[in-house]
């Protein structure tokens, strides 16, 4: 599904990612954990195609294609989805209508007919239940005046409607109370399937109690310094990131 090889990324000539290797197969859930400033969000943004970042080396292949060659919209149409850490407020653009335009752009790309208004409405109703979203939010402009929790739920709602092959969740848990966190996790779990993969980026282990990952990777200073199973998250929770930082420092000087 996704193959990242020796990925190096800079912004304004400052190296952020210093050689990332990551392979995600269909149906797998991977978690990337790391302290602030380790490069987690940069990885998410680069995958989605944010132009501010320069890929200086390495490759990202998604379903056999070189992702860096594609515009952000084509990545989405190929089945990549990024749930934003900070969803953008777009005054004047209705949440539902925008989503319908997005869904139809994706369907068109896949050679499917445009969805009609009735089918779209029933799809939207069904997916809304998944994230227990208030119907009023459908008719409001995208994210405008939404609370932090509503914005995050709206991201999962978009994901549920667009049905991506690979979803990247960028700190979707941050700022959520436990109830909202469970709703988001339930939404994600309901979408888990053998041909859909997830990359869950988080600062805290807590989310991973609800979305149980197959693999956990620790990102430190632009590199994945440790990979393991879900028990690695628990170990991090217990010991913090410092033991890994010390280990990395020790091996660098050794």
């Amino acid at each position: 599904m996704l193959e990242i090889r020796d990925l190096k990324v800079s912004i304004d000539d400052k190296a952020i990612l210093k050689g990332i290797d990551l392979t995600i197969r269909p149906g797998e859930v991977h978690a990337i954990m790391g302290p602030n400033g380790s490069g987690k969000s940069t990885l998410a943004q680069v995958m989605a195609g944010k132009e501010d970042y320069q890929v200086t080396d390495g490759s990202i292949r998604f379903l056999g294609q070189d992702l860096t060659e594609l515009d952000p919209e084509d990545r989405a149409r190929e089945g990549l989805f990024l749930a934003f850490q900070y969803p953008v407020e777009i005054p004047g653009v209705s949440n539902t209508y925008f989503l319908k335009a997005a869904l139809n752009a994706i369907r068109k790309h896949r050679g499917l007919p445009e969805i009609d208004a009735v089918d779209f409405l029933s799809l939207v109703r069904q997916k809304m239940k998944l994230v227990k979203m208030d119907e009023a939010l459908l008719h409001r402009p995208v994210n405008e005046g939404f609370s932090g929790g509503e914005k995050k739920r709206n991201e999962i709602f978009h994901m549920a409607v667009l049905e991506p092959r690979l979803a990247v969740l960028d700190e979707t848990d941050s700022g959520l109370d436990i109830d909202a966190l469970k709703i988001v996790a339930d939404g994600v779990n309901a979408l888990r399937s053998p041909d859909r993969s997830f990359l869950v980026i988080t600062h805290y282990q807590r989310l991973l109690n609800f979305i149980v990952p197959d693999f956990v990777h620790v990102l430190l200073n632009g590199r994945i310094v440790r990979s393991g199973g879900k028990e690695l998250a628990l170990e991090l929770e217990e010991k913090g990131y410092s033991w890994l930082e010390e280990e990395v420092a020790a091996s660098a000087t050794a």
Binding site: A48, G49, E51, P72, E73, R75, F81, A102, H158, L162
Partner: peptide, 14 residues
Amino acid sequence: AIFYLRSRGIGEDA
């Protein structure tokens, strides 16, 4: 906002 819309599959012009 443009990037957000594009990341959902909407083309740049649109």
